[in-house]
Every structure is written in structure tokens, then in C-alpha cells.
Design a protein around this nucleic acid. Structure first.
Length: 423
RNA sequence: GGAAGCGUGGCCGAGUGGCCGAUGGCGCACGCUUGGAAAGCGUGUAAACCGCAAGGUUUCAGAGGUUCGAAUCCUCUCGCUUCCGCCA
């Protein structure tokens, strides 16, 4: 949610910002609602104040005065109720309009429609050279008996998989590798709930334009998270941080669930795009002035962890048209996938500035020179590892001519083996 | 699933119809003290909204209701705790 005062003062900037994301908003209607609301509020409050004044005089009044006071007060109360009813109606409309407005792109984000503004900012490593035709992850995984999508489809349908044996161990190794790096940076490991209530999911901004992506249990009105950000962000809902407590950094491990509605026919093979996968996600709560630095930190940590695995990747600065509602700026990492001869997304880090924090009502306070300042925190998130896709990248990039797969150096201590081969 | 209790400010906790936006403590800020710190002492300290301001309104889990007037009484909802049952 944007600050209504900011919208009032910068209507053109808001309109432009939303348009840059491909969202059209009726700013005239919104400002009109805002004006009417304030007028109604002023007269309702005036009536109410007068009524309260009369009420307060009742205990001290003489019997005759009392009679008149009670009658006048009752009348004012009716007037107030009528005004208040209209006020609530208008305010409801106003809030609905406000919630529809996406976060604005940060000033340094390229304005361009769709994905056309995405730019490669950095390339790390080199394409691995094979003196044989590299196989895809599924072929490798099935041959090594660590991935089974056939049986998964029997049990759960399409876009599911079993990860077995050395594959399962590899997952835990990646988790522990990332935790060791991030805990040194002050991130607190968290295993959050993966089912969250409507209030939390809505506040995070995932029930507006991306509602189709989310699994919903109607009987309990609970939603399955598509990323643990949706569970870790609301953790501090309606809380106020002392400035000294910030930054607050978490790295959450959770299973993530996505309906993948509208992606029929896309990436149907293997485990690159599935309904259920595990992911480590970084979430930061920071003071507004630390937002940019934190975003760079999250991006650099993602890169550090990828370099540590020796994977070839590039970093994309995402253009305005490819930003989701909550994000003001986004950097993606795409890892090299030899079988597809292209880069595929494995990481994404966004700052949501104060957009999510406003909806979640997460604030900070700080005192200096005898004055107390309140404000909304800034919330950022970033992938530490989307584990399924990381395993896909490792299998493909570290595959050998004989069909075995070497384990990246950094993961060997965590795996307890240095190669996955056919038994 | 059955029963009971509870939900107050950044936090803890008092408060059972008008004197309550709310005693007190912790925390925090400022000052005194100190070589410096800690401790101690003193002062201050809820937020949101409307308004140029004076000021006003709202908020004691949430939504309704009773009343001229509600943190306080009533109803419903949600959450938490305890006991019982059930399951592990």
C-alpha cells in the first residue's frame, strides 16, 4: 500500500509508476474519494464532539437542564450516525482503491513493458565444456535413481517428484551449506508455518493479481505458501521495532506450493517447474535508509553462495514491466542449464520498500534529542536457494561422460560423498 | 469435541458506567552525577486520522448492541491459556 498523502501530493508519479508496471489505475476517482471522505470526516467529527460535550454536562445539570441535554444529545447522535454511515461507505471504497495500487518502481529501475527491460548486469563463471552431449537433469536423475517423477504422477499427478537417496542427501547438504554462510551474517534460521491465514496472505500482496497461484483450503480458510516470505513477513504483523533491533534478518526453510495456473505446457519435463519444492528464503526488516544497502547485500550473498557451488550464472536487473505488485526493485539470478543451452531463474531478490510493511502494519520507533520518530520498516526478501532448481543445475553442470555426477567441492563435507553414481 | 478463564500502550500490569487515553513498573530519550561507564537521581515518553493552527475524532483483541455517556454491561467472532476427552 502507498501512503495516501504521497498519492495526494504526487498523483502523476503514482500514475506513471503503476503504468510502468502495466497496471492502470483511476487516480482521479481515488483523489475524489479522498476529498469526499475528508469532508465527511470533518462534519461527522464536529457533530460527535458537540454530542460528547452535552453528555459530559449531564451529571452536573439540574433536573430541567438534564431533560433538555438528553434530548439534544440524542438528536445529535442520530445526525452523527447518519454521517458516519456514509463515511464508512466512502472509506471502504477508498481503501479498496488504495490496495489495488502496486508499489512504484525504484528510481534506478528501467522503465519498459513486460520482460523487455530486463538487463544482464553481471556474468559469473564460464559455460562448462563437455566432450559429450550433456543430458538433462531428469535423464540423469532417473538413471542415478535419485529422481522419480513417474511414480509421483501416479500418486499426485503432474508436476510432482520424488527426490531419493543421494538426491535427498544433496538437498540437506545445500540447506546446511547455505545456513552456515548466512548464520555468519546474522540471519536467524526459521522453519515457519506453510499454511497461513487470509489476513496475512492478503497483506503480503499475493491475493490480488496472483491469487490464481495460491492453494487455498476452503474448509479452514488457510492458504499454502508459495514462498516462506509469505509466512515470515507477517511474523511481525502489528509490531513496533525499536530502531536498535533492526536490521532483523531471517533465513527460512520451507516447502513452497504453487498452482502453476496458466503455465500449461511450459517446462512440463522434470522437476524445474513443480507444484511443490523446498526453498531457503532470506527476509530482512530494515530502517528505510538502509534499504538500498540491504538489497545489495541480499544480492551479493546470493552470488556468493552460487559462486561457492561453482555454478555459471548471470544476474539480471529486472525492468519495471516484470516486477510484481509488492516489489520496487528486483534482481534475479539465472543459472546455466546445459541441456537447454540457456540460463534459467534460480534466485530472485526484491525490496518491497514500505509497501508490504504498511499493509502488515510493521513499524519502528526511535528516539533522538528527546523526540520520538515513528515509521514503517522496509521489507526485503531474496532466495538463498530454490533447492530443486539448484539440484537441477548441479546435476547438469557437474555431469560426467559415464553418467555420474560430481559433487561441488563446497558440498562434499555436507554430503559425505563426492560423486553420485549408478549403483 | 466438552468446560472454564483470559485478551489494556514498545513490553509487563492496574483499572467493573461519567473524575480513564488510562495508576505503576520495565524499556527508550534527554539531563545530573562520573576520569569513562554501570548504578543512582530527575524530567519526558501511545499511535492513527482531520486541520495552517487552536483544536478535534478514533483506538483498551475484532464486529455488533444497551446507554445521554462503555476499557468497564450484553451478544457474536477470533486468538491464547488451563482442565477433560480423543489421538500420537
Amino acid at each position: 500500500m502507498l501512503d495516501i498523502k504521497f498519492i495526494r501530493e504526487n498523483p502523476e508519479a503514482v500514475k506513471k509508476g503503476a503504468a510502468a508496471k502495466g497496471v492502470s489505475i483511476d487516480i482521479v476517482k481515488l483523489l475524489k474519494l479522498d476529498t469526499v471522505k475528508r469532508e465527511l470526516q470533518a462534519s461527522a467529527e464536529k457533530t460527535r464532539a458537540l454530542q460528547k460535550e452535552l453528555s459530559a454536562a449531564v451529571p452536573k445539570a439540574t433536573p430541567e437542564e438534564k431533560k433538555k441535554l438528553l434530548a439534544d444529545s440524542s438528536k445529535l447522535k442520530e445526525e452523527f450516525l447518519a454521517l458516519d454511515e456514509r463515511l464508512k461507505l466512502i472509506d471502504g471504497e477508498l481503501v479498496a482503491e488504495l490496495m489495488r495500487i502496486p508499489n512504484l518502481p525504484a528510481p534506478d529501475v528501467k522503465i519498459a513493458p513486460g520482460e523487455s527491460g530486463n538487463e544482464v548486469a553481471l556474468i559469473s563463471g564460464k559455460r562448462p565444456q563437455f566432450d559429450f552431449k550433456p543430458k538433462d537433469a531428469l535423464t540423469l536423475g532417473e538413471a542415478l535413481d535419485i529422481i522419480d517423477v513417474d511414480r509421483a504422477s501416479k500418486v499426485s499427478g503432474s508436476r510432482f517428484g520424488y527426490l531419493k537417496g543421494a538426491g535427498a542427501i544433496l538437498e540437506f547438504a545445500i540447506v546446511r551449506y547455505a545456513l552456515d554462510i548466512l548464520m555468519k551474517e546474522g540471519f536467524v534460521p526459521v522453519i515457519p508455518p506453510v499454511m497461513v491465514g487470509e489476513k496475512a496472505m492478503k497483506a503480503m500482496g499475493y491475493l490480488d493479481r496472483s491469487a490464481d497461484e495460491v492453494y487455498h483450503f476452503a474448509a479452514d480458510n488457510l492458504y499454502l505458501v508459495g514462498t516462506s516470505e509469505q509466512s515470515v513477513g507477517p511474523m511481525h504483523m502489528d509490531e513496533v521495532f525499536e530502531a536498535a533491533e533492526l536490521p532483523k534478518r531471517y533465513v527460512a526453510f520451507s516447502t513452497c506450493f504453487r498452482r502453476e495456473a496458466g503455465s500449461y505446457g511450459k517446462d512440463t519435463r522434470g522437476i524445474l517447474r513443480v507444484h511443490q519444492f523446498d526453498k531457503l528464503e532470506m527476509v530482512s526488516f530494515v530502517l528505510p535508509e538502509h534499504d538500498d544497502a540491504e538489497h545489495k547485500l541480499l544480492s551479493s550473498l546470493e552470488q556468493k553462495m552460487m559462486k561457492g557451488l561453482g555454478l555459471h550464472f548471470h544476474v539480471l536487473n529486472i525492468g519495471s514491466g516484470d516486477l510484481g505488485d509488492p516489489a520496487a526493485r528486483k534482481y534475479d539470478i539465472e543459472a546455466w542449464i546445459p541441456s537447454e543451452d540457456k540460463f534459467r531463474e534460480t534466485h530472485s531478490t526484491s525490496t518491497t520498500t514500505d509497501w508490504q510493511a504498511r499493509r502488515l502494519n510493521i513499524r519502528f520507533k526511535r528516539s533522538a534529542a528527546g523526540k520520538t520518530e515513528h515509521g514503517f520498516v522496509h521489507m526485503l526478501n531474496g532466495t538463498a536457494f530454490a533447492i530443486g532448481r539448484t539440484i537441477v543445475a548441479i546435476l547438469e553442470n557437474y555431469q560426467q561422460a559415464d553418467g555420474s555426477v560430481k559433487i561441488p567441492e563446497a558440498l562434499i563435507p555436507y554430503c559425505g560423498f563426492d560423486r553420485i553414481e549408478k549403483k
